[in-house]
Write a protein that binds this DNA or RNA. Structure first.
Length: 626
RNA sequence: GCGCCCGUAGCUCAAGCGGUCAGAGCACCGGUCUUAAAAACCGGAUGGUACGGGUUCGAAUCCCGUCGGGCGUACCA
């Protein structure tokens, strides 16, 4: 065995302790009472597909988790929720092919996901998890639709729309690629149907202007700006958002059609409009009619008009899943509250989102829809901010042989086997070391071997008897470098810096303080092993709530003014090195260099005609005449 | 077609507002140990930064061009 410690035992023991202690749960009420804010560290929530996670998800969320763990150790109340985007055609199609009801399928895949997500040590607050197909959630999705409708932001129109003959539903234009359905690849056709739209165009100029206030990557802003299309070349490119779908597995659009009163929103106290209970999955299969399967359930459709009480019928289309996900972050802090979608107090404590780990594929859709819905709710006085995600970074995708890993490309790699053979810590470190978080990079299966050796070295180092003392400068340098790289989302470089620190300690010896510093620096990357080693070193539970190591001002000063090695170049080639105090003036540096015998040798009698100095770094003696 | 990003050891990535003869992990090679192998430990950088020009005392880094890859978007059908 390469690993000298039993990772299975260690990881399951600490996972259990974290769960029972509720280490990653935050008491938002108590925070609110003391006037503190939570740092909401948000991952785009997943569609719980039957196949489970692939390494791209794990890479993205492990990076997010590193940020969360650093911020927690830096003293913030980190709120890291997770949930499931469980409605929609993906789940429904898959269930149909198996002759299964999507509700059953989702109940099962939720469990798979939770297990997988926990196996790599991500510190989610599971106490606030929900799925968008829970009626306790979609009740409020419908409530928001009603609010938008009353505000004149939702309307029905007969228009030529894109129809997928295989999925048997209309699609938003942004759900097609090259005139084909992005989901199944079938060539789409055009049909004229009466559909529901949300008036995103009314917010076009504000969506555009708001970008200037956001701490987002410039490329993401440019993409949205381009999409919204307010540029001088015209072709208001942003169009109203087509939200109705002729399917079963979605939130029913909460509208009643009355011959006398027209389309009337369902009164808020009658929400949710529940999906009909159907046992036989065959009954909810979509067809060519352009009508939702809901239209087949006469008893469900028949109702009375909320305005005039005459017999009326329910709207039978359901909402697109992007509506579900346009507001999920608002629900997280208030999942235990039943009488309202979110509590003002909780919202003020935990939102807007502190850090959002976005996916590149969502910039012109989910991110835009969420901004639109938030702005509309702000105008209705329902939320206290206009922008849901003030700080966002877009993660790179993981490629396999130069191709993005995705189900449609058929090159999905699952983390399960690697977790079984190497453990969650190794998978985290291996994936994070494989490339910058916000850049695309190739999957490297060999990385797990390297990660395993690295963690083994740490284990052995900590097991050695304490040295009487350690190099405090090396310790300070490591802390500064690792912190800096984590904050830049360069987790791969941060891990390399920890590796270098381990190398230094192996050579020079590690006293108790150095060992503790190493374990603290390792904690965001290998949370299980760090917890174990911390406890072995006599530290109190939990390593993840310890203060992040800091560097004394005195050490900082010493690092800045220590003797430095200056490169001496002759005509641009480095020929010697001279040690001198840091912070000298150019003249002093030149004098120190010329006084060195090694430099005199290298000059070999030639006289410099010009001298170029770079503070603390080099002196270039130019002997050639231009 | 247009826009943005990228091209560094066999592989995955560092170093990039120009500055110490380009560094880490994996792989690989050699050694110790072993009957042998594996593991472990010790030791070794094996490329001159896709290509061609330019600017500079000095270019992986800046500029121009070419080639290759990715992402986004448009148009034609």
């Amino acid at each position: 065995m390469a690993v000298p410690y039993d990772f299975r035992e260690i990881e399951s023991r600490w996972q259990h302790r974290w769960d029972t202690d509720g280490l990653y749960e935050v008491d938002l009420e108590r925070l609110a009472a003391t006037g503190r804010k939570a740092f909401t560290n948000l991952a785009e929530f997943p569609y719980p597909s039957a196949e489970g996670l692939h390494v791209g998800h794990v890479f993205k969320w492990c990076g997010l988790d590193v940020i969360g763990r650093l911020r927690r150790m830096q003293g913030e109340a980190v709120f890291q929720p997770i949930g499931f985007d469980s409605f929609g055609i993906n789940a429904e199609n898959y269930a149909m092919t198996r002759g299964e009801h999507p509700a059953r399928l989702i109940a099962r895949t939720r469990q798979t996901f939770r297990k997988q997500l926990s196996s790599v040590g991500i510190g989610w607050d599971w106490s606030r998890a929900f799925a968008t197909s829970d009626s306790a959630y979609y009740r409020w999705t419908q409530w928001i639709f009603v609010k938008l409708m009353r505000a004149g932001l939702a309307y029905q129109d007969e228009a030529p729309v894109t129809w997928c003959p295989k999925c048997l539903t209309v699609l938003a234009r942004e759900q097609t690629e090259d005139e084909c359905c992005e989901r199944c690849g079938t060539a789409v056709t055009e049909r004229v149907l009466r559909q529901w739209f949300l008036r995103t165009t009314r917010y076009a100029s504000r969506l555009d202007a708001g970008l200037a206030t956001l701490d987002w990557p410039e490329s993401a802003k440019a993409k949205q700006r381009n999409w919204i299309g307010l540029q001088p070349d015209g072709s208001m490119r942003l169009h109203d958002w087509l939200v109705s779908r002729q399917r079963f597995w979605g939130a029913p659009i909460p509208v009643i059609h009355c011959d006398r009163c027209g389309a009337v929103p369902v009164p808020e106290n009658q929400l949710p409009v529940l999906l009909p209970e159907v046992e036989d999955p065959a009954l909810i299969r979509p067809d060519q009619s352009g009508k939702s399967p809901l239209a087949r359930f006469d008893e469900w459709v028949a109702t009375e008009c909320p305005a005039c009480a005459l017999p009326a019928s329910r709207e039978t289309d359901v909402l697109d899943t992007f509506v579900d996900s346009s507001w999920y972050f608002l629900r997280y802090p208030s999942t235990d509250i039943e009488g309202e979608p979110w509590s003002a107090r909780r919202t003020a404590t935990a939102l807007p989102v502190g850090f959002y780990a976005g996916g590149p594929e969502h910039v012109t859709r989910h991110h835009l829809y969420a901004r639109f819905v938030t702005m509309a709710l702000y105008d209705l006085g329902l939320v206290p901010f206009e922008e849901p995600f003030p700080h966002m970074r877009v993660g790179g995708f993981v490629r396999m042989g130069g191709v993005k890993i995705s189900k449609s490309k058929g090159n999905v790699i699952r983390p399960d086997d690697a977790v079984k053979t190497h453990g969650g810590d190794v998978v985290r470190v291996g994936l994070l070391f494989s490339g910058r978080w916000d850049a695309d990079h190739d999957y490297e299966a060999n990385g797990f071997v390297g990660a395993e050796r690295f963690l083994t070295r740490v284990w052995k180092l900590i097991s050695r008897p304490d040295s009487p003392n350690s190099d405090t400068d090396a310790m300070g340098r490591a802390v500064l470098r690792v912190t800096e790289q984590i904050e830049a989302l360069a987790f791969n470089v941060a891990i390399a810096r920890v590796m270098e620190f381990v190398g230094e300690l192996e050579k020079a010896g590690a006293d108790r303080a150095a060992k503790r510093t190493l374990v603290l620096l390792l904690a965001p990357f290998a949370p299980y092993l760090a917890e174990e080693l911390w406890s072995q070193l006599g530290g109190a539970f939990s390593v993840h709530t310890q203060p992040w190591p800091s560097v004394h001002d005195e050490t900082r000063r010493r690092l800045a003014s220590a003797d430095i090695e200056v490169a001496v170049q002759i005509d641009g080639r480095t020929r010697a090195r001279v040690t001198m105090a840091g912070g000298l003036t150019p003249e002093e540096m030149e004098r120190a260099v010329l006084a060195s015998p090694a430099v005199a040798d290298a000059l070999d009698g030639k006289r410099p005609s010009r001298v170029v100095t770079v503070r603390d770094r080099l002196v270039n003696l130019v002997t050639t005449v231009q």
